[in-house]
Amino acid sequence: MLQTSFHTFTDTLRQRLQEPLPGEVAHSKMAAASRYRLGIKPNERTRRSAVLICFYPYRGSIYLPLILRPQYDGVHAGQMAFPGGRMERFDENLTRTALREAQEEIGIRVSDVTVLGHLTELFIPPSNFYVLPVIGTLPYRPDFYPDPREVEAVVEVDLDTLLDETIVGDSQVEVRGMTVDAPFYQIENYRVWGATAMMISELLMVIGSVK
């Protein structure tokens, strides 16, 4: 029964991703106030990157992995994220970037991933990246092998948890000595905010028309 419902979900999601996406409308719901106040725009030094949002069946439900970035001297240190990273010269496209980075960071077997489509590309001012969220599925729960240089922890998230509106909050976040007002998703003991929260917001708006 689980496999039937999982396949129905993924088939419908694939179709929905071919339709117009909510994009900025969804992003604005979870954007930090500083994003619009500072008004930072893409420029000639802006680079491209991609992340993988990968669904799989587990425990009678549908899950996806998030990662906790380790503490380091960087703008995204200690934050929750989807596995992913910057596009390299040898990547033929951003889908390949997302798959390669997910394999390197959390050890999933990308040859088993079915790509359904993607969400809206999102500009991230602090790191000056455009990031493309790629949506994929695995037919099984993967074994995770996190790269300790890139990933402090893998956090498996039940889709029903993401769909629970009570996990949404708003607070001030300290980022490199600055205080930022930012909406967040409270997932277990982790607060997911910033670009990752904006991607989740669009994902949930798309899924809301699927379920």
Results as ranks from 00 to 15, higher is better:
162 L>F: 03
50 A>V: 02
128 N>Y: 04
9 F>C: 02
57 P>V: 03
85 G>F: 05
95 T>K: 15
193 W>G: 09
76 H>N: 14
56 Y>G: 00
199 M>D: 08
192 V>K: 04
110 V>Q: 09
199 M>G: 03
177 G>A: 12
90 F>V: 11
118 H>Y: 14
152 E>T: 01
97 T>R: 01
109 R>M: 12
126 P>F: 12
183 P>F: 11
100 R>T: 01
126 P>E: 09
119 L>A: 09
166 T>N: 07
157 V>Y: 06
112 D>N: 08
81 A>V: 03
34 S>P: 05
157 V>F: 06
59 R>D: 11
147 D>N: 09
109 R>T: 10
82 F>K: 00
171 S>Q: 15
2 L>V: 10
197 A>Y: 11
21 L>A: 11
47 R>H: 07
3 Q>F: 10
190 Y>F: 14
96 R>I: 09
172 Q>W: 14
210 V>T: 11
139 P>C: 05
152 E>H: 05
96 R>H: 11
168 V>F: 12
87 M>F: 07
166 T>C: 00
105 E>C: 01
182 A>M: 12
52 L>F: 04
83 P>R: 03
195 A>V: 11
181 D>T: 12
84 G>N: 04
174 E>I: 11
86 R>W: 06
135 I>E: 01
208 G>L: 08
118 H>E: 14
138 L>V: 00
95 T>Q: 13
88 E>P: 00
98 A>V: 06
70 P>H: 08
142 P>V: 03
64 L>C: 01
12 T>A: 15
11 D>K: 15
120 T>Y: 09
139 P>R: 01
200 I>T: 05
63 Y>A: 06
4 T>R: 14
